[in-house]
Amino acid sequence: MYSLIADAVVVARYLGATLVLPDIRGSKPGDKRNFEDIYDVEKFVKSLDGVVRVAKYQPAKLSSRNLAVVRVPNRVTEDHIAEQIEPIFRSKGNLRLATYFPSVNMKKTEQKSNINSVECLAMFGTLELQPEVHEVVDSMVERLRTLSRKSNGQFIAVDLRVEILEKKGCQGMKSCYSPQEIALFLRKIGFNKDTTIYLTQSRWDSSLDALKEFFPKIYTKESIMAVEKKEKFLNSEASEFEKVIDFYICSQSDVFVPAISGLFYANVAGNRIASGRTQILVPANIPGSSASAADFLSSYVSKKNHLAYSCFC
């Protein structure tokens, strides 16, 4: 969501256009939420005051079906807006933006442009959870810290989702690590059986048993969310809530381990860098019996090449 918002704000700013609060669309057709279901609208509007005009609702006279749809590459440049988007905007007057990801591109660019500061503001200064979702995340983080008494209240968040690991894109590539590989990696860099681990996997899957053998204090959303919140935030139609909860818990954990490479990892890394939580350890198959955790620090941090570093220098 951070990337999508940043692109929309950058385009609206360049064009001098009004930004209508976007729907939040899930991966399945028809799976969408209103912006205010998840984020604090007042904070969003206030943070963009003087930068971009924001409308909470699409004007009634505009039909979504009649809007010209423009594909916008993530991290859109001024040249692209001028050449590909502005002419359509000038002729049509209203646009619907559809961001796509030619690649996961969160590295900072060397050349400075007028849109850099707007991009930084949009990514790191506009989105805040609405109170109920905020409360759910805070209570889950608090629960994890309570469960981590033996490790001074510290816990690891691991982005590991079984349904993604099973997809063909993960087979044979080392951009994804299995539960067993994650268990071996964490052991070899010094984490012991008292380590508390939060998994982004929503519900327990038998394939995770190999990880639980090494690390018995391992938890999913299902096991630490308050019972009265599960019906709303953990049902078949709550995938966007689940992603947001994962994002914020992974951003607040003491250590973050992305078992899956990609956009979620890049966005969490940016949020962690912005808040000074730079313990991001990227898994690897380690020959031998032990290694230093410092050797596996994310290159976003070790090389300071994430765009967040150009926002928070």
Rank of each mutant, 00 (worst) to 15 (best):
I260D: 02
D246L: 00
G153Y: 06
A82L: 09
S251G: 11
Y309H: 13
A60E: 12
K303A: 10
W204N: 08
G30C: 06
N74S: 14
T278F: 04
E42L: 07
P283N: 06
D40R: 00
Q180Y: 15
I81C: 00
V301T: 01
N74I: 06
T200H: 12
R149G: 01
E222K: 10
V9F: 06
A269P: 12
P258E: 07
R33V: 07
P102M: 04
Y100Q: 05
D40Q: 01
V52C: 06
N192F: 03
A284G: 06
I81W: 01
C250P: 01
S290E: 11
S175L: 15
T126Q: 10
A266G: 12
L121G: 05
K112A: 10
A269T: 13
L144N: 07
N152Q: 13
E181F: 12
A238G: 10
L21C: 01
D194G: 08
D246F: 03
I197W: 00
A293C: 09
A238D: 09
I81A: 00
S292P: 08
N305Q: 14
G270K: 13
K174I: 06
E86K: 04
L147A: 02
N66G: 15
S239R: 15
E213W: 07
A226L: 07
P29D: 12
K229C: 02
P179G: 08
N116P: 07
E228V: 05
K212Y: 13
A291W: 10
N152H: 08
R13Q: 01
T200I: 05
E110Q: 14
Q58M: 14
C176E: 08
V41M: 09
R187S: 14
E36V: 06
L62Q: 15
H306D: 06
D7W: 06
V257T: 04
Q154H: 11
S151P: 09
V72F: 06
I260S: 00
I24T: 03
S91Q: 15
P22E: 08
E119V: 13
E36W: 10
S139D: 15
N152W: 02
P73W: 03
S139E: 12
A294P: 08
V137A: 02
F101G: 03
S63I: 13
K168M: 13
G50Q: 12
K303G: 05
V9A: 04
P87W: 11
P258W: 00
V141Y: 01
S27C: 07
Q180M: 09
D7P: 03
S113W: 00
K56M: 13
L4C: 10
K174C: 05
K303L: 10
I115H: 01
G16N: 03
